[in-house]
Amino acid sequence: MSEKIKWGIVGTAGIAKNAIVPAILRANNAEVVAVASRGNKQKADEFADLFQIEKTYESYDDLLNDKEIQAVYIPLPNNLHAEWVKKAARKGKHVLCEKPAALTEEETKSMVDVCNQEKVVFMEAFMYQFHPQHDRVKEIIRSGEIGDVSLMRSSFSFFLDVESENIRLDAQLGGGSLYDIGCYCIHASRFILEKEPNQVFAASNHRLPSGVDLTTTGILTFNDGVTASFSCSFQQPFENGYEVVGTNGKIKVPFAFRPDVEGGKGEIVITNKDGESRTEVVNGDQYALQIEHFSHCILTNEKPSYDGTKSIENMKVLEGCLVSLQNNKIVQL
Rank of each mutant, 00 (worst) to 15 (best):
T217S: 03
L64R: 03
A30P: 01
A34M: 07
F238P: 01
V32P: 00
Y60R: 10
Q70S: 06
L151Y: 10
F234C: 04
P132D: 02
K91F: 12
R142M: 11
E3D: 13
D49H: 14
A102T: 05
E243A: 15
E124I: 08
I141A: 11
V261W: 12
T247K: 01
I291Q: 04
A82P: 08
K4M: 14
L160Y: 04
H296S: 12
D45K: 15
A13S: 11
E243R: 15
H206S: 15
A48V: 07
L173D: 06
R90S: 09
S324F: 10
H134F: 03
L151K: 11
M127L: 13
L63R: 03
R190N: 14
W7V: 02
L289N: 05
Q42S: 13
L50Y: 09
R26H: 04
K86Y: 06
T217G: 01
F130W: 09
V10K: 12
C183P: 08
N205T: 11
V21H: 07
E267T: 11
E243G: 10
A16V: 13
N328M: 00
G211R: 06
S177Q: 03
T221E: 04
D113E: 04
V72N: 00
D113N: 02
A88P: 05
A23E: 00
Q129R: 15
K329I: 00
C97F: 05
V120E: 13
K67H: 12
Q235V: 07
I167K: 12
Q236A: 12
R26L: 02
C185V: 01
L64G: 02
N223R: 14
V112S: 02
S204N: 08
G275R: 08
E139V: 12
I20C: 05
A228R: 12
T217H: 00
I20V: 13
S277R: 13
E124A: 06
D224K: 11
A34T: 10
L220A: 08
A82Y: 11
A23Y: 02
